[in-house]
């Protein structure tokens, strides 16, 4: 399997097979199977506590799983150590709380991974970092520390930090949920650009307009299960299950 993985376009970039996970008595992921093709934008929605964030976090093993399999380009996700670190470096992750390194400047945040993990020189890493910061619109903030930036700027910088690793896929775990309303769009715009550029993306979000506009496929989760999946039009206009209809009704007011 391993040798054909990187070249073969038909192998999913991310694949979950029958994944189960418990937190004590709570069954947070129930037999979740899912695959994400190269260049696909998958949007995961569902009520809070549905397991969608947990599912997203299992993909680079920030959460362990009890049973099942997770494959990245056909290779099983390593359990620990250097192999796991290497695999993580190939998957970008953007968090709800941005999680920039508080003691480092924005530029240092973006160059740390490329220098330490990819072994790039300072010049090389900084050149690409500045390009990325330019792209997400925070180049002028490069020499400030995170606390001096707005939430929207921090999140865009965090996206640049992930992109600097030239990842195979990007995961977004509720990237706009901690933002003031006026900053949500500046982050979503960056994500739309990425999607148009062909990035493989898994996006956990409550932004239904984003899902409608950008998603290739929408996955609806509830109670740790994938209840329904389909194209945005199918899902939003003709939901098949009562759970999905109830959920969509409950957010219509917004």
């Amino acid at each position: 399997m391993a040798q054909e993985s990187t070249a073969d376009k038909n192998v999913p970039v991310i694949e979950l097979r029958h994944v189960d996970k418990h937190y004590g008595d709570l069954h947070v992921l129930r037999d979740v199977s899912l695959s994400v093709a190269r260049g696909e934008v998958l949007v995961v929605i569902g009520p809070s506590g549905s397991g969608k964030s947990t599912m997203c976090r299992t993909i680079n093993r920030l959460e362990t799983i009890d049973s099942g399999e997770i494959l990245i380009e056909g290779e099983p996700l390593p359990q620990e150590g250097r192999e796991l670190a290497r695999m993580r470096s190939e998957l970008g992750m953007v968090f709800q709380q941005f999680n920039l390194f508080a003691h480092k400047t924005i530029l240092e945040n973006v160059t740390l991974g490329p220098r330490e993990v990819l072994g790039q020189s300072k010049e090389e890493a900084e050149k690409y970092a500045m390009e990325l910061l330019e792209r997400v619109g925070v180049a002028s903030q490069a020499h400030k520390v995170p606390a001096q930036l707005s939430g929207g700027q921090q999140q865009r910088a965090a996206i640049a930090r992930s992109l600097a690793m030239r990842p195979k896929a990007m995961m977004f775990d509720e990237p706009t949920s901690a933002l003031d309303p006026e900053m949500i769009n500046e982050v979503l715009d960056v994500m739309v650009e990425l999607a148009r550029g062909g990035m493989t993306m898994v996006v956990v979000t409550h932004e239904m307009n984003f899902a409608r506009r950008v998603a290739d496929r929408v996955v609806f989760m509830a109670d740790g299960q994938i209840v329904e999946e389909g194209t945005p039009d199918e899902f939003f206009d003709h939901p098949k299950t009562q759970r999905a209809r109830d959920f969509l009704d409950s957010i219509k007011g917004h």
Partner: peptide, 16 residues
């Protein structure tokens, strides 16, 4: 005082 989030972010970019 260092949030667990920063550690997760560091893991995510592949730091050991």
């Amino acid at each position: 005082t260092i949030g667990v989030g920063q550690i997760e972010a560091a893991r995510s970019i592949g730091l050991t």
